[in-house]
């Protein structure tokens, strides 16, 4: 009898989930080792983190607020992956959505019941415009959307800095890089937590339902999984690619709109706060499942909130970003390893 390691074509669901949990635990373990090497009191830090996340009403509210944009950016990246495209540009689309919604709030007068839906539409359109060029370039010239969406992120982030420090700067002189407080608000349902969160959850469920229970969803899944098979089955790959990528941009734009109008109440430099990039992690952790997006967004929100708590204890915020990187790193290893199983066999 000898023990051999054998590759299997695909892992089972239980193995995949277990691999993910182990990955998160290992990332936390590495972080703990580094903290204790730096002389930190792990017990005290841990207690502080728990208290400021799950242990208090404000902690839970913050998690809800952070989760909202993460669900949407995660969903945006996930739906693009369904059609076989990598939308690395949720960050830029987020900025464009925030920008467009702020423009409506600042310059269109009207009753709240009209302006809030209008901001919603503007946010989605902003994100859509931001992904339009990458989409058309991919669909008609086969230009990698990975590069084009990524590059537009820098443009989007700088656009926000420009308007927030220049033309739209708060005239009261109270801030250096933000607009005045926006005159409209997304209604809240629990403390600070606004309706953006349930809408994001609802949108996720809706997207999942559309993908699984409509003809269009079936065609998108086939087209995204294998464009040649789509051609073979007379499914219009290009059309689905364009529609889904625009939808992806719109969802990321909504994230920016909710963040600017509902959470920050103003447009400020750095408002995107890496939500677009973390959305990629959420989508990767979700492995194409909508429920997975919700779980991934929750996990990332808890980590980000913990990071804020740790910052007050003198821990650098970069450490927390490194922790998210570690989780992704271990998850990738775990995913690969879950393709292997150990078998006992007679020596060949």
């Amino acid at each position: 009898m000898a023990i051999r390691i054998q590759r299997v074509p695909s892992e089972n669901l239980g193995g995949g989930v277990a691999a993910r949990l182990i990955a998160i635990l290992l990332a936390l373990l590495v972080a703990a080792v580094i903290f204790s090497l730096n002389g930190a009191d792990l017990g005290a830090l841990g207690a502080h983190v728990l208290k400021s996340t799950f242990g208090s009403r404000f902690g839970l509210m913050d998690i809800g607020l952070i989760m909202t944009p993460l669900i949407l950016t995660g969903l945006a990246v996930m739906i693009a992956m369904k059609v076989g495209a990598w939308n690395i540009g949720a960050e830029g689309q987020f900025c464009a959505g925030a920008f467009a919604a702020t423009a409506v709030a600042l310059f269109v007068p009207g009753p709240t019941v009209v302006i809030v839906p209008l901001m919603f539409v503007a946010g989605a359109l902003g994100g859509m415009v931001w992904i339009l060029i990458p989409t058309l370039a991919r669909a008609y010239a086969d230009v990698s959307e990975l590069i084009t969406t990524l590059l537009l992120n820098f443009v989007g982030v700088l656009l926000i800095y420009y308007v927030a420090t220049g033309p739209w700067l708060d005239p009261s002189g109270m801030s250096f890089a933000a607009t005045k407080r926006l005159p409209y608000d997304i209604p809240s349902f629990w403390g600070d937590v606004h309706w953006g969160l349930p809408i994001a959850v609802l949108l996720t469920v809706l997207v999942a339902a559309v993908l699984n229970y409509t003809r269009w969803g079936y065609e998108v899944r086939i087209a995204g999984s294998n464009p040649s098979a789509a051609r073979y089955a007379a499914i219009p790959f290009r059309r689905h690619l364009i529609v889904v990528m625009l939808l992806s941009g719109a969802i990321a734009g909504l994230a920016g709109m909710f963040e600017a109008v509902g959470t920050a109440h103003r447009l400020q430099g750095g408002i995107s706060n890496n939500f677009g990039y973390i959305g990629i992690m959420v989508a990767v952790l979700a492995r194409g499942s909508a429920i997975g997006v919700l779980a991934g967004a929750l996990l990332m929100a808890v980590i980000l909130k913990s990071g804020i708590a740790l910052q007050t204890q003198g821990v650098n915020i970069s450490t927390v970003l490194a922790l998210t990187g570690l989780i992704l790193f271990f998850t990738a290893i775990g995913d690969e390893l879950s393709h292997y199983r150990i078998v006992r066999s007679k020596p060949a």
Partner: peptide, 20 residues
Amino acid sequence: QSGLAPALSITDNAVIREYG
């Protein structure tokens, strides 16, 4: 390469001609 979407389920692949 062209008759199947290898990463999708057996069901998804079996119905590619009749899903509509």
